[in-house]
């Protein structure tokens, strides 16, 4: 398992921090990419950084349920105001990238796989 903090991911990918949540020291174990929340609920894992283009407030509930390290909204999309509010309330880290999901995933994969033994 990689041991890399959200802070490091933010730095290396040049991400925007929308909501810092509990703090950026949290560990990113792996990542999951998907926009169908039913699929993310079924297949993502604890500690994943979730990459999505969905901006609806339900993404916060899913990330909390699955104990993700945070959500990264790709494709320069703006989270809905309710989503930002919920992230603040739930102290969940919400990040944003200008690049699309493919580009974000490619770069993140390079970072995370370095730390896999």
């Amino acid at each position: 398992m990689p041991k890399i903090s959200l802070e490091e991911v933010v730095k290396q990918l040049g991400l925007e921090i929308v909501v810092p949540g509990e703090g950026l020291r949290k560990e990113v174990r792996w990542a999951y990419c998907g926009d169908l929340l039913s699929d993310v609920m079924a297949n993502s894992k604890e500690g994943d950084l979730w990459i999505t283009i969905q901006t609806h407030q339900n993404i916060v509930a899913v990330a909390i349920l699955k104990e993700h390290s945070g959500i990264l909204i790709a494709g320069n999309k703006e989270p809905d105001p309710e989503t930002v509010g919920k992230s603040q309330k739930e102290r969940l880290c919400l990040l944003r990238a200008k690049e699309n999901s493919f580009e974000v995933c490619g770069r993140l994969y390079e970072i995370l796989k370095k730390d896999v033994g």
């Binding site: 929340l37 039913s38 609920m41 339900n58």
Partner: peptide, 14 residues
Amino acid sequence: KPSYSIISQLGFIP
């Protein structure tokens, strides 16, 4: 349904 439904897209009904 597994596509274009509130549950497939958003996981559950808010």
